[in-house]
Design a protein around this nucleic acid. Structure first.
Length: 570
RNA sequence: CGGUGAUUAGCGCAGCUUGGUAGCGCACUUGGUUUGGGUCCAAGGGGUCGCAAGUUCGAAUCUUGCAUCACCGACCA
């Protein structure tokens, strides 16, 4: 490709709307342009990267035995009615009507369509197992699209769905997909981790997310500093503190705490560590027979945070997690938030493992502006159960039994899980078994955010000059940068010759034939992140040499023109 | 959904307080100059000042409504 015939579209200045570095660089390097909130046009350079990522994903999926299909982005709402998700999905699902006022949705994912397809196409156990995938645009009407293509509303995703007779077969394919994902991210050249993930409402035994490590990531990942253990903080188990709970020493004492509400204030006011206090959160419970939803109290150590996923998974707690209203607090407890505590509380009390290990702690006295000090479990606060309901924090013992927890940020770029029979059952997807009986299929599903990977790769690989693409996904493998070509026939001839030679060899090369000053060319190619620059100038031509500059390492070296192809034979 | 802020040329911004026919830098066009790290000089093109209504002799500027975009929050017991 010659730059004179190409759309480089680089910018010197950073558009004000871009927050994270990958978004800024994607705009400056001319990879994408914003069309509307969360919607982007991919320019030629960006599309080249996107296609390279896509192709690696496609190749590895095919190698793992999956078959490619393509399903429509617009889907009849009927299918979603059938699976029950039309009502469950919420406002992220964009609904629309066609000219006949028939209801449709824009597909945020394709379980319904694929399950329907397989239900129609597959009728015998002999055709199983089957794994199909597509690389298709999805639409999710996000509350707050942000960070460019990292969290857009429309995005490119690879989604695969596998179909099995039974769990054992599913587990085999799950492992095959796990391995394929590792190969994909290895080939992409990214620093990533598979992490144990919450299976969410879908259930199932296992689920893993694949995260690219980057500070701008939206998820917290808990690692062991010793073993390979890694889990999403949503899922990471907080172990009970070791040893016996200390014996109570202090007497239960009421303390006036006028206008002291938050844990921070209480700890400062009473001059105790926040880890020696507890906070009591009141949430909606599961409705009972008479349709009255009770309130449930969740008790945590003052310095810990509630894990909403863990709380929602408790049988007593309503999902989605909803905090009690102020009116409920007044009616049921008789005081405002900030003065609630487990002593003498009449509602069901669930205590986090760490909070349950405290003795002589501080808590609200269920009267406004009053706290207790010297409170103790069993002696003062009775009738409670213990559960793991907090987020792990750095320094906690790792749930794998080895080492301590370290927390890093990650960008979720892949997610695999075992779906089970949920969709197959709803959409009547089954086959005849060897015994001639109809059996519902067991499914797995496996997603990769293709467009998000592009952003994540930049988050992980950039410097002050621009993007430093991993070689496998760089838009160009090499750039030819001639110095003052217009003034030197020798330079021009050499550049043209090299360009022909590289093109013939199938190398993805960009030839900067613009009549620009060297600084402009260097700056553009460094911004775009081409891994290799071949600099051709009068200076080195006498010795039949050119300069090779490596974008990643910054190294420069001289190379005989005749040896150029050796750069690509490794 | 709540809070905050923004909207003036393709991009980044000034002008608004104190109303008087719209400006700067980058980019773009033309000519010259320069040429191994975003040259310099000169001339030029490009804007219903987000939309609508109001106040006024006169509105980018004041008032009201609407739209769009962005950021923050949704851990409070």
């Amino acid at each position: 490709m010659r730059t004179s015939q190409y759309l480089l579209s680089t910018l010197k200045e950073t558009p004000a709307s871009a927050e994270v570095i990958s978004h800024q660089l994607m705009l400056r390097a001319g990879l994408v342009r914003n069309v509307a909130s969360g919607l982007y046009t991919w320019l030629p350079t960006g599309l080249k990267v996107l296609r390279k990522v896509e192709n690696i994903v496609r190749e590895e999926m095919q190698r793992a035995g999956a078959l490619e299909v393509l399903m429509p982005m617009v889907q009849p709402a009927d299918l979603w009615q059938e699976s029950g998700r039309l009502d469950d999905y919420g406002p992220e699902l964009l609904r629309l009507n066609d000219r006949h006022m028939r209801p449709f949705v824009l597909g945020p994912t394709h379980e319904e369509v694929i399950t329907k397809l397989i239900a129609n196409e597959i009728s015998s156990y002999k055709q199983l197992p089957l794994n199909v995938f597509q690389i298709q645009t999805k639409f999710r009407d996000e509350i707050r699209p942000r960070f460019g293509v990292m969290r857009g509303r429309e995005f490119l995703m690879k989604d695969a769905y596998s179909f099995h007779l039974g769990e054992d077969c599913l587990k085999k394919t799950y492992q095959v997909m796990f391995d394929a994902y590792c190969r994909i991210f290895d080939r992409l050249g990214l620093d990533y981790r598979p992490v144990i993930a919450d299976t969410g409402s879908i259930g199932g035994d296992a689920s893993h997310e694949f995260h690219v490590l980057a500070d701008s990531g939206e998820d917290d990942i808990a690692f062991s500093d010793v073993s390979d253990f890694a889990a999403n903080v949503e899922k990471a188990e907080a172990l009970a503190p070791a040893g016996e709970r200390p014996t109570p020493k202090a007497a239960l004492t009421e303390v006036a705490t006028p206008n002291v509400r938050s844990i921070e204030d209480v700890a400062a006011f009473l001059k105790v560590e926040s880890s020696k206090t507890v906070k009591t959160l009141l949430v909606q419970g599961i409705a009972t027979d008479d349709n009255q939803a009770p309130i449930v109290a969740l008790v945590l150590r003052g310095d810990h945070q509630l894990n909403e996923v863990k709380a929602e998974n408790l049988p007593q707690v309503a999902a989605p997690l909803t905090f009690a209203t102020e009116q409920q607090l007044l009616d049921e407890i008789g005081c405002h938030a900030g003065s609630i505590g487990p002593v003498g509380l009449s509602v069901e009390v669930i205590v986090d493992r760490s909070a349950a290990h405290l003795a002589d702690f501080v808590c609200g006295a269920n009267k406004d502006d009053v706290h207790y000090s010297g409170a103790n479990w069993d002696r003062d606060a009775k009738n409670y159960s213990i559960a793991d309901i907090r987020n792990v924090v750095a320094g906690d013992p790792s749930p794998c039994g080895e080492g301590k927890i370290v927390i890093k940020r990650g960008v979720e770029v892949g997610h695999i899980f075992q779906l089970g029979e949920k969709y197959a059952q709803a959409m009547n997807c089954g086959v005849l078994t060897e015994a001639g009986k109809n059996q519902t299929l067991t499914m797995g599903c496996y997603g990769i955010g293709v467009s998000r990977i592009v952003a994540a790769a930049i988050e992980q690989n950039h410097d002050k000059y621009g993007i430093k693409w991993p070689a496998a996904i760089a838009p160009f493998q090499v750039a030819i940068v001639p110095m003052n070509m217009a003034k030197s026939a020798r330079v021009q001839e050499t550049a043209e010759h090299l360009y022909q030679q590289l093109q013939t060899a199938g190398i993805d090369v960009i030839f900067d034939d613009r009549k620009e000053r060297p600084g402009v060319m260097f700056a553009d190619h460094e911004l775009i992140g081409t891994p290799l620059l071949l600099v051709i100038g009068e200076r080195n031509l006498d010795k039949q040499e050119i300069e090779v500059k490596n974008r990643i390492s910054g190294e420069k070296s001289l190379l005989a023109i005749s040896d150029v192809m050796s750069l690509f034979t490794k």
